[in-house]
Design a protein around this nucleic acid. Sequence first.
DNA 1: TTCGCTTCCTAGCACGTGCTAGTTGGGTAG
DNA 2: CTACCCAACTAGCACGTGCTAGGAAGCGAA
Lengths: 334, 334
Amino acid sequence: MGENASKRVTAADVARSLGVSRATVGFVLNNTPGQTISEPTRRRVLAEAERLGYRPHRAAQDLRRGSSKIILVVLPDLQMEYRLRQYLEETSLALDEAGYSLAVYARQPVSRARPLWELLTPDVVLGIGPFSDEEAASMRACGVTKIIPDPGQSETMDEAPTIIAGPALQVEHLHDLGHRHLAFAATADPRASSLLQARAGAAQRTAARLGLDPLDVRAIEYRGDSAAAAVRHWHKAGVTGVVAYNDDVAAMMVGAAIRAGLSVPGDLAVIGHDDIPLAAVFVPSISSVSIDAAGLGRYFAAVALHVADGRPLPHRDFDSDATLVARESTVGNG
Amino acid sequence: MGENASKRVTAADVARSLGVSRATVGFVLNNTPGQTISEPTRRRVLAEAERLGYRPHRAAQDLRRGSSKIILVVLPDLQMEYRLRQYLEETSLALDEAGYSLAVYARQPVSRARPLWELLTPDVVLGIGPFSDEEAASMRACGVTKIIPDPGQSETMDEAPTIIAGPALQVEHLHDLGHRHLAFAATADPRASSLLQARAGAAQRTAARLGLDPLDVRAIEYRGDSAAAAVRHWHKAGVTGVVAYNDDVAAMMVGAAIRAGLSVPGDLAVIGHDDIPLAAVFVPSISSVSIDAAGLGRYFAAVALHVADGRPLPHRDFDSDATLVARESTVGNG
DNA sequence: TTCGCTTCCTAGCACGTGCTAGTTGGGTAG
DNA sequence: CTACCCAACTAGCACGTGCTAGGAAGCGAA
């Protein structure tokens, strides 16, 4: 056919091919309110746009609009997996229905590469966990004004009900089982530090509420013998229950305990967080906390839209977000 | 100060504030070749741009340039973790040095949300694993012409040397240990299917080369008793070594074997792939294959740039990509 | 002086879009 | 017949950038 030549199809192409003006094409394609377009013309434009395979040029739209309609989610790390996937899936869907697109960015702590917000110029940047001042400054310099959580007005995320629920369940579970000397197994991964702070803080507050001593906190590393050292130390100190930052850390604790000749949960009970699939597979299987990722994802999207558009924030009952999953690492088998 | 007002700083602002033309500012900031700018002016421009906090408007640049300078990596799933993170980190860095930015997108199989390539209009889309025809069509409709791997010219990725190396090591390792009846534990996750095909195929070819029978392949699911069923079936059939698609699947096999009362590796040896941290933590620890993620990441970036720019493809020695890590699940303890 | 050449700078186009301000022509009320 | 209105369109601006074409000034050579 005539039109071809490796070139992008623009609205002007559609207009030219039809013998109408570019404005008419724009009005039809955008359903511009306050414009009257005759039905035959409207149909011809739509048909021709379809036929030529017209797609609006994103950069031109962004330039004209002055906004990218992109919402960026920044993760501390791709590692915090599985549940997060459902969570983001749901968020993405909700935003899509509102005409926004969601991009996910896993921050790399040592990267010299340009951060994603710099190349997307998103309308909103949503963090799972707080941003450093440099990061916030970098965003603002790139024209991002809407940042959640905003380092300027620091409402501590320690208080976020979505985060409190899980650690509270962990501590309560061990308490219910009769454990009175608990410890908290943290991760040494700096990427998780903010979420770690929040979870550890929530666990401490729950312990205090139940009249328990403050939890001794130790960082566990993937490599090396820090898990074994923690097990020895805690066991000697009379600790019988370990609250782990997540299931990975819980697995390390369980593994180290068994290798040290302890019985789990007899000598040491361990509970994780997130309910990743491997928690059920491990020997012994690992108790955990399951998160209502889909529900939280929708709420997350609502927060983003609230900030982006000003649309109202729906009510959410946070109590149903987390569910305890009891397995062998706390209640034994049988 | 004077300049403020919630507005973005443009090159025109810098020019106006300095009393020079916009073009001059552009020449300085872009180091435009063939333009001579006096040193004092150059310095003044740079200083003023810095002072005002000027950042080029991404959409305007893209519009002008006709290209987004974005390279999108599409993952089958965020799940295939850890090594991949290093890999992407290295890729991102190499691209950054070449003036490109890398965005990562985890495809969601059931998502109705708009795919990321539609909103970024990247120059290149790189897949880890092949694309479906619909996906490729969707990309092309959005103006993406450079797609790797391109479904049009299907060079089977089964042959990719980066993928062959790992499974070959797995099979050879079990063979070296005297195992003659092997099986392949696949994943039931459809997201991994292409990578799964490649790894399973490579394992089969290695087995054939060593004169072994074809490996029985079974899909293992995270939930349910498929792992236990596979263990029973294979043990009864005389299989003594299991090659697993990845460490997660390996962990499920090891867990199921132990729960079935078998000894690992006495009755059943299991080897995983990727060397995730949990492989070392599991009881027994899980043998695996470690990947030179950083090196592969750089090579990946080179391929992307080759397609984007036409710059030459460096040579790579693929033999050093994969390393065997022998642990208790194949060689026992001690 | 006049021409050419170099240095240093400016005017303004093009990119594709969304949309405001305006034009045309037919119908209808006065 | 004039005045006015309204449906149905078009002309063209603005967004911020990269860059080409061109202009002004200085300076050496003929």
